[in-house]
Design a protein around this nucleic acid. Structure first.
Ligand SMILES: [Zn+2]
Ligand SMILES: [Zn+2]
Ligand SMILES: [Zn+2]
Ligand SMILES: [Zn+2]
Lengths: 165, 165
DNA sequence: CGCATTATGTTACAATATAACATTACAGTA
DNA sequence: TACTGTAATGTTATATTGTAACATAATGCG
């Protein structure tokens, strides 16, 4: 399944669609790859997709507990490990937090826009950025295995919102 | 003071020169900006520059203690805060570790090459990367405040070294 | 079913970072 | 010089994030 690069999530977008899309996509992908998207992993993935803000592991742990599951830190970290290994979730290392992947199944590296005002995160998959980075590294004889790019700033809506005040 | 983009630090480079350059540069910069590069901060900066590998806060803490200073976590974190605020040190968030800045005084954002084999870090200041990132973000109406790029892989020397075996 | 494998539960702890308040050093000034 | 306000450091305690190690339960398969 292909879809074009999503813009920064707007305040009034149909987020239920984001969630159901992400979950169905994950189910299909795991099915196809012979991966076990267990109830716990599914539950964690759904919690992560509650919104477009990155969520901490211990916050997920609280929510799991409130949903009636017996959970301890390893519970959530193991689920996160599975989801990250299989490209369903990314870690935002500048925030020690986790966010659902918008391009699950595609082979890609992470590029994030993080709005400091509303806390939302958008994931890019800008090929130009990737190629410039690869080129810059290769010029120095460096072989790139992977990379992360975390861009902080202000999203379009928050800019306009602040103008209104 | 200007100098061209340093390559990945070679095994036989004159590292004493790196250290003295970084320290003198920091002293001059703080002098000029009216910042207080106290003994503690100077000491921490020197420890960070012991090599080109990122170092953890608690490792710095141990070394400070061995050097006879009474130190606790806040001691080192406060020094790190000062050094980071003033662009003398960067944090490698994917490793929870800190590394001396190679372009202190210049206004720049961080771009790192991290060798998974030898653990060394090289800091880039590739303008092309910067402009492509800014462009990609701006197209989505996103105003960039700052960003970090952490590239993992294998450096040139480690590649050759592994061929020799 | 019986067995091997994988996933989850459970307990304890490691590693990283900060809050809050006391004390000391410092710079400017009377 | 002593006084004084500010910035820096010391100190104690605790918050936050992440793992190790081993026990139990679920799953898939012959
Ligand atoms: Zn959404
Ligand atoms: Zn925003
Ligand atoms: Zn060096
Ligand atoms: Zn290397």
């Amino acid at each position: 399944m292909t879809h074009n690069n999503p813009p920064f999530p707007s305040a009034d977008h149909d987020h239920k669609h984001c969630v159901s899309h992400a979950l169905k996509n994950a189910e299909a992908y795991c099915q196809q790859q012979g991966l076990r998207l267990t109830k716990l992993r599914h539950q964690v993935l759904e919690l992560i997709w509650a919104n477009h803000q990155p969520v901490g592991a211990y916050e997920l742990l609280d929510q799991l507990t409130h949903e009636g599951r017996k959970a301890a830190p390893p519970t959530v970290y193991r689920a996160l490990d599975f989801l990250m290994e299989n490209g369903l979730v990314h870690r935002i290392s500048s925030r020690n937090a986790y966010v659902g992947c918008s391009h699950a199944g595609h082979d890609h590296t992470a590029q994030f826009l993080i709005c400091e005002s509303c806390g939302q995160v958008a994931e890019l998959d800008n090929a130009q950025i990737g190629s410039v980075i690869a080129k810059g590294a290769n010029q120095l004889g460096f072989t790139v295995a992977q990379w992360t790019l975390e861009i902080s700033g202000t999203c379009d809506q928050c800019k306009h919102r602040s103008q209104d005040e």
